[in-house]
Write a protein that binds this DNA or RNA. Structure first.
Lengths: 203, 203
DNA sequence: CAATTAATTGAACAATTGTTCAATTAATTT
DNA sequence: AAATTAATTGAACAATTGTTCAATTAATTG
């Protein structure tokens, strides 16, 4: 990472403090003063690195989306053979620990901005499309190897992501972990079906 | 509706002004003063009807969820035979006009509170479970009539809702209506498949 | 070391936040 | 019509909001 000079370090430090404060207090009710307090610096120093609040919010969204992207990237580079990658990835995607890699509260707050700020909409759109097309490529490879039965990889990718996003959306409302896991299992099963795979008869 | 006395009317009026202001300005940056301004009343009158801001937010969430519920309820009571209801409902659910019945920006902002306020979490949970179980009942009826092939209606209901929610989540990031519709069509198709139905060969 | 650039501080700013309260007007009841 | 209750107003509140700016300290360069 090219965080050479002290300026870039401070900038990152500030955004991370923003992120951590937002987890506890909520994105919209996290003020510059609160971030400053958590870093034990004066608020004016924050404005020295980010000219305005909205610039800071933009930086946070970039930070979040980058983090989100990295979580996926990591999964792709773990194993070698495409089918192994796919199998491991699917299993992780539809699991609780995957979900806990990232704070959903902050994420949804940021997501709400999509409806008012075109720039934010674009950012989210870009990341999600990247994720889907990467997954689509993986599906294509697996299909060529005869590991899955997938006529339209792009479509399957979309469906699996929609299913995934919708599942996380729903389980966030649930209190019991048991229920959450049950829903994840159901969705995972359907994901495997979409790909013409039987989860427990890995062939 | 039992909105007899002037007090209840005012209360509703205030919440609706809140909702409408939040559509434009965002939920979190809609202040009591702004709501008051839009109604041309002093802020103190709002606090007279809702003791605090958080009480007002609670009322808005109730309003939103009620609205959301009503949209579904309406669909159930339109036709008589279960299969017709199901077919019409599915088609509407996965359509753009359905999506436009409600402001998603406000909805997601409210949803973000799920992660910090247990009370809000409970409310959302309740509504969504109600919706899913109602739909599940409908599936059961349709299955008994041999219209669909559905081993586990509850599970199918969950999957279809997850798919639906995830689809709306994604298309909110898209600019072009064409793309949005395409994704909706894909998801709708899968929904029909889940139920063992062929959309265009209605039998 | 001197000079320059960058980082940090603290005081001050107007505007807005949610909320309180006493005073006034309007509606309802006796 | 008088008395009581409810609705509405406007002024005031301390606290916090984002932001500016001049002054000071620290780091880097010549």
């Amino acid at each position: 990472m090219g965080l050479s000079n002290i300026s870039d370090l401070r900038r990152r430090e500030i955004v991370e403090a923003f992120y951590n404060t937002a987890i506890k207090e909520g994105l919209e009710s996290t003020s510059i003063a609160k971030i400053a307090k958590s870093l034990e610096i004066p608020p004016s120093l924050i404005i020295h690195y980010y000219k305005s609040k909205s610039e800071l919010v933009t930086a946070l969204i970039d930070h979040c989306l980058e983090l989100y992207l990295q979580i996926f990237e990591k999964a792709y580079t773990q194993k070698k053979k495409s089918p192994d990658v796919l199998y491991a990835l699917l299993q992780r995607m539809f699991s609780k620990d995957w979900n806990e890699l990232f704070d959903d509260g902050v994420y949804y707050s940021a997501y709400a901005l999509v409806f008012r700020e075109a720039e934010v909409k674009e950012k989210f759109n870009k990341i999600h499309k990247t994720l889907r097309s990467k997954f689509s490529e993986l599906l294509m490879e697996c299909d060529e190897l005869g590991y899955i039965d997938c006529k339209d990889p792009e479509q399957s990718s979309n469906l699996i992501f929609s299913l995934l996003d919708g599942t996380y959306y729903f389980i966030s409302m649930l209190d019991s972990e048991k229920e959450q896991k049950q829903h994840l299992r159901q969705s995972e099963e359907l994901a495997f079906e979409i790909l013409g795979l039987d989860k427990h008869n890995k062939n």
